[in-house]
Simulated scan of single mutants.
Amino acid sequence: MFPIRDHNPSRRPAYVTYGIMALNIAVFLAMLPAYSNDATLYDIYANWALVPARVSSGDGAYTFFSSIFMHAGFMHLAGNMLFLWIFGDNLEDELGHGKFLGFYLFCGAIAGLAQFLADPSARVPMVGASGAIAGVMGAYLLLYPKAKIDILLILIIFFKIFPVPAWVMLGLWALMQIVGGVSATSGSGGVAYLAHLGGFIAGIVVIYPKWMALGGRQYWNRTFGHPPHPEAQYQFVKSSVPIVKRRK
């Protein structure tokens, strides 16, 4: 089960969101030859990924930012870019291009800091934009808790798309990070659950003054938790394949 789109159209082009996506894809393509060469990939990670033990030694503070533009594989990249495409344009629309870029980088750095503080001696490299994107998701949850999110549910051969409120989808995602963070062994690699949670909480905290300026709960009362503009309506095009009735 994963989101494929929201019903919250942005009112102006999300140049920064698209630029971030393009930069992430460009970095992945530049690193692509290294994925088949362990020594080269190790050198890239050693220089640009976030390695807590290296930061603890007083080196590599810049990797809190460089690491959020790197990914460990195609599916890692594709999943993150999907979430950024769904949620990023609306937050950029609300904050403006410059403030959104600062917000994104800040949440990414806080996400890395959360993972770093969990085990400053860890030598496992951390890469990925998911911490920064988690911040975007946290802000989206506070601003538009009832915006419709289309979910694709796949059960073996059963495919179904249905809309759910943002708070359901993002709430379940946050719960999964908490459960994963509790069960994960510190420094064992895999998913950086604490980075996700750190970014998510940072996004909520940073956007909170904006939410209050809009009216806080009164803003929710005015919009009923939905975007303050008409939601997008999607209709599925009927298949052109003719239906052949079964003969009796």
Results as ranks from 00 to 15, higher is better:
Thr63Gly: 04
Leu50His: 03
Lys160Glu: 10
Gly79Phe: 08
Leu91Asn: 06
Ile178Thr: 09
Asp38Leu: 05
Met169Asn: 05
Leu153Arg: 11
Leu142His: 01
Ala134Ser: 15
Leu84Ala: 03
Ile44Met: 13
Phe74Lys: 10
Leu117Trp: 07
Ile151Lys: 07
Ile110His: 05
Ile86Cys: 09
Leu152Pro: 00
Met176Val: 00
Met176Lys: 04
Ser67Thr: 04
Met126Val: 12
Ser121His: 15
Ala39Pro: 02
Tyr62Thr: 11
Phe106Ala: 15
Phe158Asp: 05
Phe83Val: 01
Ala184Met: 14
Ile110Tyr: 02
Leu153Pro: 00
Phe64Val: 10
Phe103Trp: 10
Ala132Pro: 04
Pro165Cys: 06
Met126Asn: 11
Ser56Lys: 15
Lys146Leu: 02
Leu142Glu: 01
Gly108Ala: 05
Gly88Leu: 03
Asn37Gly: 00
Ala147Asp: 13
Ser183Pro: 00
Gly138Asn: 09
Val124Lys: 03
Met81Thr: 07
Pro120Cys: 10
Gly58Ile: 12
Ile154Arg: 15
Ala147Gln: 06
Met75Asp: 07
Phe106His: 00
Tyr45Gln: 15
Phe106Glu: 00
Trp167Met: 13
Ile151Arg: 09
Phe74Ala: 13
Gly135Val: 03
Ile133Lys: 05
Gly88Cys: 10
Thr40Leu: 12
Leu84Pro: 08
Val51Thr: 15
Pro145Met: 04
Ile154Trp: 05
Phe106Lys: 01
Ala129Arg: 05
Pro120Ile: 04
Ala111Arg: 01
Val164Ser: 02
Tyr45Lys: 07
Arg123Asp: 08
Ile68Val: 13
Ile157Arg: 11
Leu141Tyr: 04
Ala114Gly: 06
Leu41Gln: 13
Phe87Lys: 08
Leu172Phe: 13
Leu101His: 05
Gly112Arg: 05
His71Glu: 11
Asp89Glu: 12
Gly102Ser: 11
Val164His: 00
Tyr104Asn: 03
Phe100Ile: 11
Gly181His: 10
Phe116Asp: 06
Leu50Ala: 05
Leu91Thr: 06
Leu175Met: 14
Gly171Cys: 08
Tyr45Met: 09
Met70Phe: 02
Lys146Pro: 00
Phe116Tyr: 15
Gly96Arg: 14
Gln115Asn: 10
Ala46Glu: 09
Asp89Met: 06
Ile44Gly: 08
Gly96Pro: 12
Lys148Glu: 08
Gly73Glu: 06
Tyr45Ala: 04
Leu50Ser: 01
Thr63Lys: 09
Leu142Tyr: 02
Met70Asn: 11
Ala174Cys: 10
Trp167His: 12
Ala39Glu: 14
Glu94Met: 14
Ala129Ser: 15
Asp59Tyr: 10
Gly135Ile: 02
Gly138Met: 09
Ala53Tyr: 04
Ala53Met: 03
Phe159Pro: 04
Lys146Gly: 00
Ala39Gly: 02
Tyr104Gly: 03
Glu92Tyr: 09
Ala109His: 12
Phe162Trp: 06
Ile86Met: 02
Trp173Phe: 06
Gly108Glu: 01
Gln115Arg: 06
Asn37Pro: 01
Ala46Met: 09
Phe116Ala: 04
Ala114Met: 12
Ala122Trp: 07
Trp167Glu: 12
Ser130Phe: 01
Tyr104Ser: 01
Ala129Gln: 14
Pro52Asn: 07
Ile86Asn: 06
Leu105Ile: 07
Ala122Thr: 11
Val127Cys: 09
Ala46Cys: 00
Val124Gln: 07
Pro165Thr: 05
Gly138Gln: 05
Val127Met: 08
Phe69His: 11
Glu94Pro: 01
Pro145Thr: 09
Lys99Cys: 03
Leu41Trp: 14
Lys146Asn: 14
Pro165Gln: 02
Ile156Met: 13
